[in-house]
Structure formats: C-alpha cells, structure tokens
Design a protein around this nucleic acid. Structure first.
Lengths: 217, 217
DNA sequence: CTTTTATGAATGAAGG
DNA sequence: CCTTCATTCATAAAAG
C-alpha cells in the first residue's frame, strides 16, 4: 500500500487545500465557491481494498461454480444477471484506478545523473534535496525518489547478475538451501498446495454472508 | 470506473479523465492550480451501490453454492483448492515453491484486526496465540507473524509521516510536531457490512481482484 | 484493440 | 525500532 501519497507540495494556497493533508473526508471549497467532498488517497485506497475483498470472494465463488457446473451452464447465466449493475458493467473495467508517478524526461535525466555519480544509498537528507530539485520539474514526492533509487539499484544489480551467466555453472549451485542454515527461517514451508481445509476460510465481513458460509461447512 | 485521476501533471488533459461509469466526478482546479480529487454525493451513492452489489452477489453465490454442495460433497474440497492456493491463483506462473510467506486474505484480515485493536508490540506469548489461530487458515510461522507486526508498525508510522508532510520546500526544516491527528474517517458512505471504522483499518488487497473484475465483464 | 514490456510501488524478510 | 534488500504486483507505455 502506499505510504506514499503525493502530497500537495507546491500549494499556492495551502489553506484552501485538503487541510493538513492528514487525510480524512473534508469539505472543501473550490474556486466556484461550491462545497464538495474530497477524498484522499488513503481513503481511496481503503475503499479500493474493501471492494477488492468482494471482488476476490466473487471470483473464487465464480470459479468454483464454473467447475461445479461445467456440464450445465445454468449458473453462468445466473451470474450474468447478477452483474448487470450499470456501475460495474458500463465500460468500467477497473473498479479502481491506481495512478502512479511517472517521471518526466527532465526528472529522469537528473535521477540518472545522480545515480551514475555512484553514491549509492541516498540518505534521507539527500533524498530531500533531490526531491526539492526535481520538484521544479514536475510533481514528485520523496517517496518517489526513494523508490526510484531502490528500484534502480535492484535492477541494475539483477542485470549484472544475469550478465555473468558464463561461468556460473561449475560452481556449487545447490538448488536446496545449505543444511546448516543460520537464519531462523520459518519452519520449512510444506507443499504450496496444502493449506486450510475449511470453507469458512472465505473471508466475509458481512455478517449474513458469514453465517451463510458457516452453514456451508 | 475511475474517479478523477490525480495529478498526471505532465500530460493531464482533464477532459479525458472522467471516463468512468455512473459517476459525475469532478476534477477541480483551485486557485493555486492544484488538482484535487473530489467526490460528489452522486458518486458516493454510486459507490455505495456498487459495494452493495458485491455483497448481494456474494450472498447469492454462497446460497447457490450451499444448495449445490448439499448434494455433492466434493465441492467442499474444490473450494478449498481454489481458495487456499495463493501460489496458483496469482497469475498462474510457476508452481514451484515460493520462499516467502504470503498471507492469505483471511490471515491478513485477522492480522489487521488484531493490529487495529491497538495493542502494539505483541508479546511472545501473544504471537504464539495469533500464529495458532492463523495456522488454521494457511501455513504460517511465528516468525512470519512477528515480522508482519514489525513491518506493519513501521510502515504505518512512515505513512503517517509522509501524509503530514505538507510543507513547501521553501520552509526551514521544522521537525514534524503537529498533533498526531488520526486520520478522520470518510463520511460514512461505506456499507455497514464491510465498513471499517478507520482508514488504516485496511482490509486486504488481492491480486486476483483485477482478474476477477475482468472475468465478470 | 490486445499483448508485451518497462518500471513504480508494495511487502516479507534480514541486518544493525 | 530503523533501514535495506529481494521479490512480486500492477500499470503506464510501447509494440503488434
């Protein structure tokens, strides 16, 4: 989840904006003097996830149903009716849209340059500075910068590893982990397939549905 | 559906943003030239309906399933397979064992609930209990639980910091000292069934959500 | 428009 | 507790 919320960084009139950026549904006044409710990114995210709960449950139930009724397509038809809600079906493929920061060419150039200067692992303070500079070329947050370097480092590294595939074969390439593993790794996971064995694993927050699930046990 | 996309300020053409379904969202520009997301009453109503749709679908599917499984006992097994196999369900890539634990939706939900109950820093004993409970819903170890709380706490904190970072860069570095105001709850548009009381009371995110929505087209 | 790729972001785990 | 890393997820952009 995003601990990164593009904050109103260059607000010319902060007092008019989402108060404090602290999140929370607010009543704001826009330019026209009209009152509107404002939804913060956090709220959006929470909502998205809550909806995702239902989406997940629905998908699993639908899949289950498909497998159960592969002979007769009755269930399919019934499901279609259920999904006739205009909001769901009217061209909206995505319930929620998450937007992500996309660096402008200028920003990217600057970032690349800094990255090439070698100083890996920019400190907090360094990130602040960089962010401040990049901010002049488009909206950006410190988190964006942090992530960028994080990804850049990781992918640079990975690419390098992939490059040296020449002589790696002869080395001790044991697929399994060394027997005397030091790290207290969680007790070795069993086969991925194993797991819970009860239908009520379907997670419902809806009391009614929940009881329904239980009776399915 | 997509409400107003936030600030793709590098190429934002507001007229292309409001693509979404039933909504009548606004992309407002205030005096400072900043974009804010707003939600109208109409949108809220639509959202409420959408969530309600899921609740209904789930209930009906559950009922459907119930009646079907009363005749076919093997259905229960299938449900388990469908649901509890996070490895297969996420995109259908390699079935080869994964190294890192991935909480199932149920587990996550439980964890979140416990986390929200406030008692930070679960004791060793507490972790044991939690692990025991979560074990009923999928493979897990105490280390996993411990790490989860560790990460959850740290990231919650960081997120809060990022959120309240609403000062322009021209300001002197004043250490954050504002009252730790809890994020306020969005106006209660959430359906009672799945409502959570706080934004950070997040449910779970599931990669299947998208495909679920897709398959329902 | 559909598929593929590139990459921003999320997160479990390790280290200090 | 904090930061860092590795891996994975999701999506904007590019390719077909």
């Amino acid at each position: 989840m995003e601990w990164n919320k593009p904050p109103p960084q260059q607000a010319a009139h902060p007092e008019e904006l989402n108060g404090g950026g602290g999140g929370g549904g607010n009543l704001n006044v826009n330019g026209g003097g009209m009152f509107v409710k404002v939804m913060t990114d956090e709220q959006m995210e929470v909502l998205r996830k809550q909806i995702a709960v239902y989406a997940t449950i629905c998908e699993q139930l639908v899949e289950l149903h498909k497998s159960l009724t592969s002979q007769h397509d009755l269930a399919g038809a019934r499901l279609v009716n259920l999904y006739s809600d205009p909001f769901v079906t009217s061209g909206g493929h995505k319930i929620t849209g998450r937007q992500r920061w996309t660096p402008t060419p200028v920003q990217l150039q600057i970032l690349e340059r800094i990255f090439d200067q070698g100083n890996g692992a920019p400190s907090k303070q360094k990130i602040k500075e960089i962010t401040a500079e990049l901010c002049q070329h488009g909206q950006i947050s410190e988190t964006n910068v942090y992530n960028w370097f994080q990804n850049r480092r990781a992918r640079s590294k990975r690419k390098q590893q992939a490059t040296q595939q020449n002589h790696a074969e002869s080395e001790v390439e044991t697929e399994v982990e060394s027997p005397n593993e030091k790290k207290t790794k969680p007790d070795d996971f069993q086969t991925p397939q194993i797991a819970s064995s009860k239908p009520e694993d379907l997670c419902f927050q809806n009391p009614e549905a929940n009881s329904a699930m239980h009776s399915m046990d």
